[in-house]
Write a protein that binds this DNA or RNA. Structure first.
Lengths: 278, 278
DNA sequence: CTCCAGCCCTGACCCTGCGTCAAGGTCAAG
DNA sequence: CTTGACCTTGACGCAGGGTCAGGGCTGGAG
């Protein structure tokens, strides 16, 4: 008769594993000797080896009993099933490898390639680090909700940033990133923003744009803006005084006064930079 | 301010996952409102998305914090490490696929191909089912301990089974598989076994064989034999009366009387079938 | 006879990444 | 006031065991 450690070593497993199989009901509990020790016969070694053979082939323990008892066709079906699972796990790992490789290659954590290029361009054009970080976070939020549309948005943003007037406006916004709410430059900045938007709105008048950005996302981006810029509430207040509300999706204050339909927003996907010419 | 479910839905995760990340220290616990609810800002959404981005790339949560804080080179090193793990897991799954495919192809659970062929041949030659099962279990035990040697052993076994006298002897042993210990056919069977072994031993005299089968395995195989055949103890006793001891590794009773060295055993790797002519 | 090493026993906590109750407090709407 | 949808903490569960903790047994040496 064999002790548990002898049984385990014959089958090449640990004593703990044997007890685990007992607990799982895979291997029947053997007789005990007078002191309570388990005593095994040679047949138990064979059973244990069969269990390990299946387990070593990737069969989950929960299915081992079933497979040990299965006839040929049931066995084949179960094997098919397990192989499917293994293939799925392999594919998952392979996708993971692609993703971390992309991350390591500079897909700066959660940002698509186009956004990284855009942020680099901002850096070249002398935008402040703070502003770039804020912009990056905004694009992380957008990419999480609508990854498909990001390349299209990025094309717009690239055009915007290369546009002289708009870039200058944007650079000045960046310079006010850390300013106090009562900074004297804020009112003139609000004037410039309002003037710009009005011009863009006039151009876009009557153009029915699709609205791909959800209200939820707009609200989130506005919140991110306000969190990041101490002077944001003041700036928004100044804009409201000039008849505009919101930031990411900036709109006239009183929609009903202008038209019965939702007024065309100017650029809903360009947080922290105003209207687009697209 | 966002509730936990809003945060979770922005990042595309479950509320439970968010709390899990809090518990793991990946995401800092935010302020609570007056009733104890967690209240998040937009920055938390960005952080959560970054966590998920890494997790979705196969980074274990235990390493996420490290990677979020890592500089470029540390990040690359960690990614290298994680990729190694992923590759190892893929290779493991691929090995599993090969194994279950072999099992499904008739590698009848833990038996190498050669042994399956041998068992099939036994079936063709009219051996009894009981005996074949016992033989199968023995080869499972042997294959678990010394898989490399099994093909060589199988060649010997094939030769044995095709040998007229030996096959007849073996068939008769099979017929006695379920016999009572006092079956009258046992003494004459013992005579035949003893006669056969003596002839084989005479032939093999002076030949120093390597002993590839460990004493432990021999003991295990003998135990399996005794467990399987009710009349095995009686048969072994009759053989001892004729001067032979053991079964798998059958030997003269009193080694010292014959020579000072360990006497050549006849065939240590052929359980339940006696000497080999190899 | 005692001592010690090396077995054996059960019970319980640990790992991953959450899912899923359970039991109760809160909030907004009707 | 009630209802249903949230929120809270706490706990168990999954796979496959690893790793103590705290005790009992055994066999050989001194």
């Amino acid at each position: 008769m064999l002790t548990i450690s002898q049984l385990a070593s014959y089958a090449g497993v640990t004593v703990r594993a044997v007890r685990h199989y007992h607990a799982k009901g895979l291997l029947p509990e053997p007789e005990r000797d007078h002191s309570g020790y388990r005593r095994y016969d040679a047949a138990a070694v064979v059973e244990l080896i069969r269990i390990r053979t299946l387990a070593d082939a990737g069969v989950p323990l929960s299915r081992v009993r079933e497979l040990l008892a299965a006839g040929d066709e049931a066995f084949a079906a179960a094997v098919e099933d397990i192989d499917r699972r293994l293939r799925a796990e392999i594919r998952q790992r392979q996708r993971h490898r692609v993703r971390i490789a992309q991350l390591a290659a500079g897909d700066s954590l959660a940002l698509p390639r186009e956004a990284v290029a855009y942020l680099n361009r901002m850096h070249e054009l002398g935008f402040r680090k703070r502003l770039i970080e804020i912009e990056r976070d905004s694009w992380i939020l957008i990419a999480a909700q609508m990854p498909e549309q990001v390349p299209a948005f990025m094309a717009i943003k690239h055009a915007q940033i290369e546009h002289e007037t708009l870039r200058r406006l944007y650079l000045d916004i960046g310079d006010l990133a850390d300013c106090a709410p009562d900074d004297p430059r804020l009112p003139s900045l609000a004037d410039r923003v309002a003037a710009f938007i009005e011009a863009a709105a006039a151009e876009a008048a009557g153009v029915e744009e699709e609205q791909p950005v959800s209200d939820d996302l707009v609200a989130l981006l506005d919140a991110a803006f306000v969190e990041s810029f101490p002077c944001a509430p003041r700036l928004l207040q100044l804009l409201e005084e000039r008849g505009w509300t919101g930031w990411t999706n900036i709109r006239p204050m009183d929609p009903a006064a202008r038209s019965s339909r939702q007024p065309a927003s100017v650029d809903r996907a360009s947080p922290h930079v105003m209207p687009s010419y697209s």
